[in-house]
Design a protein around this nucleic acid. Structure first.
Length: 420
RNA sequence: GUGGUUGUAGCUCAGUUGGUUAGAGCGCCUGGUUGUGGCCCAGGAGGUCGGGGGUUCGAGUCCCCUCAUCCACCCCA
């Protein structure tokens, strides 16, 4: 088993389980274009600085979760731990920097060197969307609406939408000062993580879950009250638009999120069927700084975790869509028949039929067993007798009935019988 | 990175206080029909008991290390 196991935190997706992945991807390709979004494909790795500057040097992800390596040209590269920074790197070369808008989505693997657990892998997959270049509360709300629309399409219900504002970058200082003043009194009684957060990123104290910290956190000052009137109004407007779209949400003042690029709206979508890692999607408005650039790329977006969507669907008992197209098994009795079957299979496939042809001269019994095992709709049997008479026998696997058919009309016969 | 859990056949798992050639069910292969599947019956193939070291006359079983798994913390999707 170890010999066939992939590296820790990764997994193989076999043909038997691919259908539900297609379902998630097909739904994205169906829903997102309705909102004007098109797919963008960026590299799986970027210059390391793209993430260091983009996500923030002090974030957990950058500090200890990135797969960073040097390539043969001595460049420091990093496997993308999330999608936004790379997308912004690509967007920076377009007219979004002049206030024009672009709407893109992406699908693909992300990489983080964490200890695997339920709903957490080292290579995991996200579907993300980014509305880049403009600032408007309506866009934030529409982004969330599109997320809910997508979840509805793939049958996920029972989610909780948590939303909060982080204010503008210029709002941070006064709020941070207030937090620091408040927590400095009680920091000694808080958990070790919070002690380092106090210096590194005081905001993150707010969503600490350690019991010994809860009492202090609950009485902490309302940071939003330190934000500018414009920022507060922006958030009120986002909520108002969500209301007008009949989207249910809960304002969670302690929702901070771990990536430094967020400003104004942040949100998270959780599902009860998942275990400790219960967020299936998260996002918000951001200002992403790229290397050698003083001006950030701005936008709003989110990412959904595909593995977690799959877990949620399983918890909800949403049936994985299965492929019901008929499969035909070509049984060949004798070397001649097997030779005859290869081009015959080609003709059937050219006509759009799914065909598996046996290539070994096995017993009839073994070949019928094989036909049964692959779930063949019908077996096409060919042997010396049939070759002599220029016919093949089509055996309906469900009814058990057999029919002689000419090889020339076989494709048409199978289509008319089994493909409605 | 910290803690705990588990690791025996392709899969799900038994394996008694350490005792000869390690088992079951499912799956797979062959046969029971000169060329006919599913059900049934009979045979068969398949395992360095995750790996390494140690204790012992003897280790799947006990001890240490290591690798991997799953889960929780941290953090995130």
């Amino acid at each position: 088993m170890a010999k066939s196991a992939p590296p820790p935190g990764t997994s193989d997706i076999f043909p038997e389980e691919i259908a539900s992945w297609y379902c998630l991807e097909d739904a994205a390709r169906k829903i997102f274009p309705l909102y004007g979004f098109g797919e963008l494909r960026t590299p799986v790795f970027e210059y390391t600085e793209v993430f260091q500057r983009g996500l923030g040097d002090d974030t957990e992800v950058v500090q200890k979760e990135m797969y960073t390596f040097e390539d043969r040209g001595g460049r420091s590269l990093t496997l993308r731990p999330e999608g936004t920074a790379g997308v912004m790197r690509a967007m920076a070369g377009t007219d979004v920097m002049n206030g024009n808008e672009r709407r893109v989505y992406y699908v693909g693997p992300m990489f983080r060197g964490e200890r695997p657990a339920a709903g957490r892998k080292r290579q995991f997959h996200q579907i993300g969307v980014e509305n880049v270049g403009r600032v408007a509360p309506e866009l934030d709300a529409e982004c969330i609406a599109m997320l809910m629309h997508y979840l509805e399409e793939i049958g996920i219900t029972g989610t909780r939408l948590l939303i909060n504002t982080r204010g503008a970058l210029s709002d941070r200082k006064p709020a941070e000062d207030a937090l620091r003043e408040y927590f400095s009194a009680g920091i000694d009684s808080m958990c070790d993580d919070c002690k380092t957060r106090f210096d590194k990123n005081i905001w993150r104290i707010l969503d600490c879950k350690a019991p010994e910290c809860q009492e202090l956190i609950e009485k902490a000052p309302d940071v939003v009250s330190f934000f500018s009137e414009e920022s507060q109004e922006y958030f009120r407007k986002v909520c108002a638009v969500l209301d007008s779209l009949n989207i249910n949400y809960e304002i969670e003042p302690r929702l901070v999120r771990g990536l430094d690029y967020y400003v104004h709206t942040v949100f998270e979508l959780t599902h009860p069927g998942l275990g400790a890692q219960n967020a299936i999607a998260g996002g918000g408005r951001y200002e992403v700084f790229l290397p050698d650039s003083k001006k950030p790329v701005i936008g709003v977006g989110y990412a959904v975790g595909m593995e977690r969507l799959l877990m949620a669907r399983e918890a909800l008992g949403v049936a994985a869509s299965e492929d019901n197209t008929p499969v035909f098994y070509l049984a060949g009795l004798g070397e001649k028949a097997i030779e005859f079957n290869m081009p015959l299979a080609g003709k059937l496939r050219a006509a759009g039929l799914k065909v598996v042809a046996e290539v070994e001269n096995k017993s009839m019994k073994a070949q019928m067993r094989a036909a049964n095992r692959i779930g063949a709709t019908a077996a096409v049997i060919c042997g010396d007798n049939e070759l002599e008479n220029n016919i093949v026998i089509v055996k309906d696997m469900e009814k058990g009935e057999q029919q002689e058919v000419s090889p020339e009309t076989l494709a048409d016969y199978l289509k008319s019988q089994y493909c409605s």
